[in-house]
């Protein structure tokens, strides 16, 4: 699996006004710093530090993450749907790369 691959899962069908659960998995090493005797010996700063999700352009979910989030992070968040549309998610990492994915919610 390559870094930055985004996989999303949404319910197949939704009803107006329903709160649906969106599951997102992104492939990313989320490197940690290595310590020996309390001192950092290896400084790895490549990790996802910002996540944004929108539904039909409206912001629904945002996260500021640190190295304390696991490798290949999983995020599960709710979206209230009033109309069919597209959930768009964007990940930003500390190297300035962005990864995005989208999923369609049908009625």
């Amino acid at each position: 699996m390559s870094v930055g691959q985004v996989r999303m899962r949404v319910p197949e069908k939704a009803k107006a006004g329903e709160v649906v659960t969106v599951r997102v998995l992104v492939t990313h090493p989320m490197q940690t710093m290595q310590y020996r005797d309390g001192k950092p010996v290896e400084r790895n700063y490549v990790y996802i530090n910002r996540v944004e999700a929108t539904y039909n352009g409206k912001k629904v979910f945002e996260a500021e993450t640190t190295q304390s989030v696991s490798e290949n992070p999983l995020f599960v968040f709710p979206v209230k749907v009033d109309a069919p549309g597209i959930v768009q998610i964007t990940f930003h990492d500390t190297e300035g790369k962005t990864f995005s994915g989208q999923a369609e919610i049908k009625f």
């Binding site: 709160v19 912001k59 989030v69």
Partner: peptide
């Protein structure tokens, strides 16, 4: 007891509909 105790901060809007979140963290 993590070196930097704040693992993650999630921001929601009323459009989220319900405050329920799941993720994986390192301890």
């Amino acid at each position: 007891k993590n070196r930097r105790p704040l693992n993650a901060k999630f921001t929601l809007t009323p459009d989220a509909g319900r405050a329920s979140i799941a993720t994986n963290v390192r301890l």
